[in-house]
Design a binder for these strands. Structure first.
Length: 266
DNA sequence: ATGCCGTGGAAACCACGA
């Protein structure tokens, strides 16, 4: 929308924090620096009652979250916007207790925040779980698309979609994040009609969102692009900019992921 | 290059991550 020649923007970000409590100083610093309107967090690594709600609130954000002891955990934060939770957990498997999906209606947009399983080692039960989770996500995504409303499915997909998204593709061909089955699953999902926002705005460009803690990966820029924004057509047409706050990865006590963001017309 | 780092939780090591 354009009011008095001023383009009103809405900034949506995703950040795999790798432990929301251990990462709190970095998270708050980044929120203060970039002030996104909506933030999706993954890998809280905190039980429900240990989420740092007050610190997030003091930073100006409302939050909903789905915690889990030790592992996983996802949250959605919003500044000056109401968060109406629409789902926690993906449909399709009552026995799946991992906290990997939370969804909310915010400012007219469905925001699905996800942490797709890693899947290593592959082959094996963890890889099977990854592909099964991917199928459930794809089924749910189709029902969201059918509603013809603005939707973003965002988070840590644990998939490098193409060779351009890996610093050394040949080293990753047997890894659960890059195996043909995994890339095919991502391709099938996007093929429903979703737009990979960062790739659309930066075609052919090397973009990474993760750098390993060891082997000096960040300094060598030995990274992966695994955190993605998938936009429904109704949101894609409002997409303006997208990027990675890669400098945050260089901060003291950083996560191994960097924050990723998009800006849309509001 | 098959966890060299980092996190959380249990227990002073382990599971897990990508």
């Amino acid at each position: 929308m354009i009011n008095n020649n001023t383009l009103i923007l809405m900034k949506i970000a995703t950040y795999n924090v790798n432990g929301v409590n251990g990462r709190l100083p970095v998270l708050l610093r980044w929120l203060e620096e970039t002030s996104p309107d909506v933030v999706c967090l993954q890998e809280l690594k905190a039980p429900q009652e240990k989420f740092p709600e007050q610190a997030i609130k003091d930073a100006g954000y409302k939050a909903i979250w789905h915690g889990q002891k030790s592992w996983n955990g996802v949250a959605i934060l919003a500044k000056n916007l109401e968060i109406k939770e629409t789902r926690r957990g993906l449909p399709g498997d009552e026995e799946d207790l991992h906290s990997r999906y939370i969804e909310a209606f915010i400012n007219g947009i469905v925001v699905g925040c996800l942490y797709l399983p890693n899947g290593n080692p592959s082959p094996g039960p963890k890889f099977d779980y990854k592909l099964a989770w991917f199928e459930r996500l794809t089924t749910h995504a189709k029902s969201l698309l059918a509603r013809k409303i603005p939707v973003v499915l965002v988070g840590d997909y644990n998939v490098m979609p193409t060779e351009l998204d890996v610093y050394k593709p040949e080293r990753w061909v047997n890894d659960a994040l890059f195996r043909p089955e995994t890339r095919q699953a991502f391709h099938n999902l996007v093929g429903q009609g979703w737009t990979d926002a960062l790739r659309k705005l930066h075609p052919g460009e090397k973009i990474y969102t993760f750098w390993d803690y060891f082997r000096n990966a960040y300094a060598r820029d030995a990274g992966l692009r695994i955190d993605h924004f998938l936009l429904s057509p109704e949101l894609d047409k409002r997409l303006l900019t997208a990027g990675v706050d890669r400098h945050v990865r260089g901060w003291e006590k950083s996560s191994d992921h960097g924050p990723v963001w998009i800006e849309i017309e509001d």
